[in-house]
Design a protein around this nucleic acid. Structure first.
Length: 573
RNA sequence: CGGGGCGUGGCGCAGUCCGGCAGCGCGCAGCGUUCGGGACGCUGAGGUCGGAGGUUCAAAUCCUCUCGCCCCGACCA
């Protein structure tokens, strides 16, 4: 590709609203352009990257027996009503009406379509197992799109669906995907980890996420330093610190003026946070008031809480709602409250004589004990793990790291096939719902995550596997023989199957060097008066400090070798 | 959804408080000089100041409404 005619141009200054490195650099390097909030065009340079990511995904999906197909982006609402998700999913799903006033939705995902197809295409155990997949647009009306391609509303996802006869067979399909995903993200050059995750809105029985490490990640994962455990903070377990046991002491009111927070209470009384109980108030979607008691040094994990009480929706309670059950914001405790569902964290049961609120402003109560002074409707683990929490397997303090979710895998089971009646007949002619798994990779997010991990102050450092081009070729100087030599090298490289972005523009050298660094192709070749007089080409790797000079007639072979070597280095073992 | 901020030429911004010819840098076009790390000079093109309504002799500027975009929050009371 000759740069003089490349559609899209690099820009010096990033848009003011771009905060993430990947957002700034991909815009500056003429790879993406915004059309609206969370909606992007992919310019030719960016689309080359995306297509390479897609190709890697295809190869690895095909390798586990996946069959590529394509399902529609606009769906009749009927199938979403059948699965129950038309009403279950909120404004995140875009809805519209067709000219006949029929409800339609834009695809957020494709479980319903696959299940619908199953009803006509699969009727016998002999046809199973199967894995189907496609690369298709999704639209999710995120409350807050941000960060360039990291969190967008319209995006391409590779989603695949495994179809099996039973849970054991699903385990096999699931494991195949775990292997494929590991190979895919390795080939993309990502630094990532597979972690246990929440099943969320998809329903199902198990889920793992593939997380690319990045300081801009929206998820926090906890990692055992001994490799015994890794999980999303949303679901992470940890070994609780069991406090010293002591005799239960009688309750005692204590005046604590102006201590509306746990920290201020602990400061006033001169006790550690772990000797207090804090109250957290929620209103659930069902209308239940959820009163959470947890030790003061711990945080509530809302995902655990949701799962524990079987409530999909949870919001902080208002002051009025809190007072209505007999509690006082800032000085709340379960003592004497009514009409509330009380959930106590395990930590509260294990810790005697905690300081709790008195449900009147300016007062707390010492030595409050679960079971003696109040009862909970549910006692379970709803505490959030944090950096330093003990690994549930080996007890070592875990690290916390931010990461971007680039892929996830779900064991769905029969959630959709039961609801929509997608059955197969077994060897005895008995009908069973097909057992499904669902597996996704955000293509653009994966590419952007690579940029998050692979860049420097000058621009992107693409891995060879997904760089827009293998080589940036620069012609330096205006002399005709230089242009002729560079033209000839361009042709020779291209003929050898090497992808070349040829900077044949009339710009000064500095402009070309800077653009080459910004765009980030792995190899830079330059021909100038200096090099041509010696029949040499300057060769510099994007990741290298210095350049080397290669005889002009051996450049093609040299570049070929570097390309192959770097691609091989990205291959999974 | 709550709070905050911003919409002025392709990009980055000033001008708005205090109404009075719409500006600057980059980029773009032409000419000339330059040519290994984002050159310089001269000339020039390009803007419904997000939109609608209002106040005024006069509105980018004041008022009302509205649209769009960004940031923070939407768990610890």
């Amino acid at each position: 590709m000759r740069m003089a005619h490349l559609f899209g141009r690099t820009i010096r200054e990033a848009p003011a609203d771009a905060e993430f490195p990947s957002h700034q650099l991909m815009v500056r390097a003429a790879m993406i352009r915004p059309l609206g909030a969370g909606i992007y065009s992919l310019l030719p340079l960016g689309y080359r990257v995306i297509r390479k990511v897609e190709q890697i995904v295809r190869e690895e999906m095909d390798a586990i027996g996946g069959q590529e197909m394509l399902m529609p982006f606009v769906h009749p609402a009927d199938i979403w009503r059948e699965s129950g998700r038309f009403d279950a999913i909120g404004p995140e799903m875009a809805r519209l009406k067709d000219r006949g006033d029929r409800d339609m939705v834009l695809a957020m995902t494709h479980e319903e379509v696959v299940t619908d197809l199953l009803r006509t295409e699969v009727s016998s155990y002999k046809q199973l197992p199967q894995i189907v997949y496609h690369l298709q647009s999704k639209f999710r009306d995120e409350p807050r799109a941000r960060g360039g391609l990291i969190r967008v509303r319209e995006f391409t996802m590779k989603d695949s669906y495994s179809l099996d006869v039973d849970d054991d067979a699903l385990d096999v399909s699931y494991q195949k995907h775990a292997v494929a995903y590991t190979r895919i993200f390795t080939r993309l050059g990502l630094d990532f980890i597979q972690v246990g995750a929440d099943v969320g809105m998809m329903g199902g029985t198990a889920s793992d996420e593939f997380m690319a490490f990045s300081p801009h990640g929206e998820d926090i994962i906890l990692i055992c330093p001994n490799g015994d455990y890794a999980a999303n903070r949303e679901v992470a377990e940890f070994r609780p610190v069991v406090p010293a046991q002591e005799d239960l002491l009688p309750m005692e009111d204590v005046e604590t003026p102006d201590t509306p927070t746990i920290q201020s209470l602990a400061d006033l009384l001169g006790i550690p946070l772990s000797r207090t109980a804090k109250a957290v108030f929620y209103m659930a979607g069902s209308g239940r008031f959820i009163f959470v008691v947890i030790r003061g040094d711990l945080d509530v994990n809302e995902t655990k809480l949701r799962n524990a009480i079987g409530e999909a929706e949870l919001r902080p309670a208002t002051t009025e709602e809190i007072r209505a059950i007999g509690a006082e914001p800032g000085y709340g405790s379960p003592l004497g409250v009514k009409d509330a569902f009380i959930v106590a964290d395990e930590s509260v049961r294990q810790s005697p004589n905690l300081v709790s609120g008195a449900n009147r402003e300016g007062w707390h109560v010492r030595n409050v004990n679960l079971g003696r002074d109040y009862e909970a409707d549910l006692v379970t683990d709803i505490a959030a793990a944090a950096a330093g929490s003990a690994c549930p397997v080996c007890g070592a303090p875990m690290h916390a790291a931010r990461a971007i979710e680039v892929g996830n895998i779900f064991k769905l089971g029969t959630r959709y096939t039961t609801a929509m009646g997608a059955n197969y007949l077994d060897t005895d002619g008995v009908a069973h719902p097909v057992v499904m798994g669902s597996y996704g990779i955000g293509i653009g997010r994966a590419a952007a995550s690579v940029v998050e991990q692979c860049h420097d102050e000058k621009g992107i450092l693409w891995p060879m596997s997904i760089a827009p081009f293998h080589v940036s070729l620069l012609t330096i100087g205006k002399d005709e023989d230089i242009a002729a030599a560079t033209d000839a090298l361009y042709d020779a490289l291209t003929a050898a199957g090497i992808e070349v972005l040829y900077d044949d523009r009339g710009d000064r050298p500095g402009v070309k060097f800077n653009d080459a660094d910004l765009i980030g192709n792995p190899i830079r070749l330059s021909i100038s008066r200096r090099t041509l007089d010696k029949q040499e080409v300057e060769l510099k790797l994007r990741t290298a400090e210095s350049a080397e000079f290669v005889p002009i007639d051996s450049v093609v072979a040299r570049v070929r070798g570097i390309v192959d070597e770097q691609l091989a280095a990205l291959q999974p073992k």
